[in-house]
């Protein structure tokens, strides 16, 4: 558990360092994920503790978005003027994007 947490945090930290040194336009954790991915592919196995830790975190991923979702109320004034247009654009574009991605996947996968 501790080893797995140290590994996750370590990858994130190295990711943040690389982003700052190279000036990459992506967030540090994304680079950290790429590093962990490369490392695990080289070692060709995922340790049981890393598997359990990742599984625990990812099965409760929703929890981590709660503070940001609560923060939406802070900016409700941004919706006073353009509320309808924004909500319409969000709902339609998100549903269309979901459908387009899934249809393209099925079409190319040839089912």
């Amino acid at each position: 558990m501790i080893n797995a947490i140290a590994l996750l945090l370590g990858c994130q930290l190295i990711g943040e360092i690389i982003v700052r040194l190279v000036g990459l336009p992506v967030p540090g954790p994304v680079v950290g994920a790429a590093l962990l991915c490369a490392g695990l592919l080289v070692r060709r196995r995922v340790s049981p503790t890393l598997d359990t830790t990742a599984r625990t975190i990812l099965s409760n991923l929703s929890l981590l978005f709660v503070p940001a979702a609560v923060g939406v109320v802070e900016h409700r004034e941004l919706f006073l003027t353009h509320g309808f247009a924004l909500v319409a654009a969000l709902v339609v574009s998100t549903v269309m994007a979901l459908a387009a991605a899934a249809l393209a996947f099925r079409w190319v996968a040839g089912e």
Partner: peptide
Amino acid sequence: FRTYFEGAQFVHFMLGPATVALAVPLVQ
């Protein structure tokens, strides 16, 4: 909200390590 976030930031912070953890199911 600012007072709330002083406590909630610890949960918010975990988004970073969780993003790194996405590498595990990807490799699996």
